Amino acid sequence: LQLFIKTLTGKTFTVEMEPSDTIENLKAKIQDKEGIPPDQQRLIFAGKQLEDGRTLSDYNIQKESTLHLVL
Rank of each mutant, 00 (worst) to 15 (best):
L1D: 05
Q2P: 11
Q2F: 11
L3Q: 00
L3T: 01
L3G: 00
L3S: 00
I5A: 00
I5D: 00
I5P: 00
I5Y: 01
K6E: 11
T7E: 06
L8Y: 10
T9W: 15
G10S: 06
G10A: 05
K11N: 15
F13C: 02
F13N: 01
F13K: 01
V15R: 00
E16G: 09
M17R: 01
M17N: 02
M17E: 01
E18S: 08
E18G: 11
S20P: 04
S20D: 15
D21G: 09
T22M: 07
T22E: 03
I23R: 00
I23Q: 01
I23P: 02
E24M: 12
E24N: 10
E24W: 10
N25D: 11
N25L: 10
L26C: 02
K27G: 01
K27Y: 03
K27T: 02
K27D: 00
K29P: 00
I30R: 00
I30Y: 01
Q31K: 08
Q31W: 09
D32T: 08
D32N: 07
D32G: 07
K33V: 12
E34F: 11
G35L: 05
G35Y: 04
G35N: 10
I36V: 14
I36L: 09
I36C: 03
I36F: 14
P37K: 07
P38G: 07
P38K: 12
P38H: 11
P38N: 12
P38W: 15
Q40G: 06
Q41E: 01
Q41H: 03
R42V: 13
R42Q: 13
L43N: 00
I44Y: 13
F45C: 03
A46F: 11
G47N: 15
G47R: 04
G47T: 05
G47K: 04
G47Y: 05
K48Y: 07
K48F: 09
K48Q: 12
L50G: 01
L50A: 02
E51F: 07
E51R: 06
E51I: 09
E51D: 15
D52C: 03
D52N: 13
D52R: 04
D52I: 06
G53S: 11
R54L: 07
R54W: 15
R54K: 14
T55C: 03
T55L: 06
T55S: 09
L56S: 01
S57M: 15
S57K: 13
D58M: 05
D58G: 04
D58F: 12
D58K: 03
Y59S: 03
N60S: 14
N60H: 10
I61P: 03
I61K: 02
Q62W: 10
K63G: 13
E64A: 13
S65K: 04
S65W: 04
T66V: 15
L67Y: 03
L67S: 02
L67E: 02
H68D: 10
H68K: 05
L69Q: 01
L69R: 00
L69G: 01
V70M: 07
L71K: 11
L71W: 08
L71R: 10
L71E: 08
